[in-house]
Simulated scan of single mutants.
Amino acid sequence: MSLAADVLDAARARGVMIATAESCTGGLIVAALTEVPGSSDAVDRGFITYSNSAKQDMLGVRPDTLQAHGAVSEEVAMEMAAGALRQSAAGIAVSVTGIAGPGGSEHKPEGRVCFGIAQPFGTRTETVEFGAIGRHRVRAATVEHALQLLMDGLRRG
């Protein structure tokens, strides 16, 4: 069985729906979940918020947060995850914002992805440096890590 299927089973066991808030993955996380037959009873929605204005409009990310920290930051990942939870019927939401490449900078290198995981009792964030392994690989690794964060959150909560 796949990690996505395991996440869905864990969500069903907890009686919660899942939401995603995705920037650098462009919907690949929710696509991995909905690839599994019968996922409609555990997936509520996915927000694809590639632009800063989409992050603000759809998820309520504050312009001040974007200005102070930039889109690729744990602060923005936190607001994205919390916004996805607030704007959905989900009991858990995962967010991702990062630099899949090519490109990046000294301060925000290619392969840096910030994650958020929100549940009614709080939101956690973390940053993973996947490195300059190529756009496709960064995005694939981000999906796997996001699914694992969902699994961990569903087991803990």
Rank of each mutant, 00 (worst) to 15 (best):
residue 1 M to F: 15
residue 2 S to W: 11
residue 5 A to M: 10
residue 6 D to W: 11
residue 8 L to S: 13
residue 9 D to I: 11
residue 9 D to K: 15
residue 11 A to E: 13
residue 14 R to C: 13
residue 16 V to S: 12
residue 17 M to G: 14
residue 18 I to F: 12
residue 18 I to P: 09
residue 22 E to T: 04
residue 22 E to N: 05
residue 25 T to L: 00
residue 26 G to N: 01
residue 27 G to D: 03
residue 27 G to C: 08
residue 27 G to Q: 03
residue 28 L to Y: 06
residue 29 I to K: 10
residue 31 A to M: 04
residue 33 L to W: 04
residue 35 E to C: 09
residue 35 E to V: 03
residue 36 V to T: 15
residue 41 D to Q: 11
residue 43 V to Y: 01
residue 43 V to D: 00
residue 43 V to H: 06
residue 44 D to N: 14
residue 46 G to Q: 03
residue 47 F to G: 03
residue 49 T to H: 00
residue 52 N to V: 00
residue 53 S to F: 03
residue 53 S to E: 09
residue 58 M to S: 01
residue 59 L to Y: 01
residue 60 G to H: 00
residue 62 R to G: 09
residue 62 R to C: 09
residue 64 D to G: 04
residue 65 T to G: 05
residue 66 L to V: 04
residue 70 G to Q: 05
residue 72 V to W: 03
residue 73 S to E: 08
residue 74 E to N: 04
residue 75 E to W: 09
residue 77 A to D: 07
residue 77 A to I: 02
residue 78 M to S: 08
residue 79 E to K: 08
residue 79 E to C: 01
residue 83 G to N: 05
residue 85 L to P: 09
residue 85 L to D: 07
residue 86 R to C: 03
residue 87 Q to K: 10
residue 91 G to R: 14
residue 92 I to S: 09
residue 94 V to N: 02
residue 95 S to K: 04
residue 97 T to D: 01
residue 98 G to N: 06
residue 103 G to A: 00
residue 104 G to W: 03
residue 106 E to Q: 11
residue 106 E to S: 13
residue 108 K to H: 07
residue 109 P to A: 10
residue 109 P to Y: 03
residue 110 E to L: 05
residue 115 F to Y: 11
residue 117 I to S: 11
residue 118 A to Q: 06
residue 119 Q to G: 14
residue 122 G to W: 06
residue 123 T to I: 10
residue 127 T to K: 01
residue 128 V to W: 06
residue 128 V to L: 10
residue 129 E to Y: 14
residue 129 E to N: 12
residue 130 F to Q: 01
residue 130 F to Y: 09
residue 130 F to D: 05
residue 131 G to P: 06
residue 132 A to M: 03
residue 133 I to G: 07
residue 134 G to S: 02
residue 135 R to Y: 01
residue 136 H to S: 11
residue 136 H to W: 03
residue 138 V to F: 01
residue 142 T to D: 02
residue 142 T to I: 06
residue 142 T to N: 02
residue 143 V to F: 11
residue 143 V to Y: 12
residue 149 L to V: 07
residue 152 D to C: 08
residue 153 G to W: 02
residue 154 L to A: 07
residue 154 L to M: 12
residue 154 L to H: 13
residue 155 R to M: 12
residue 155 R to W: 11
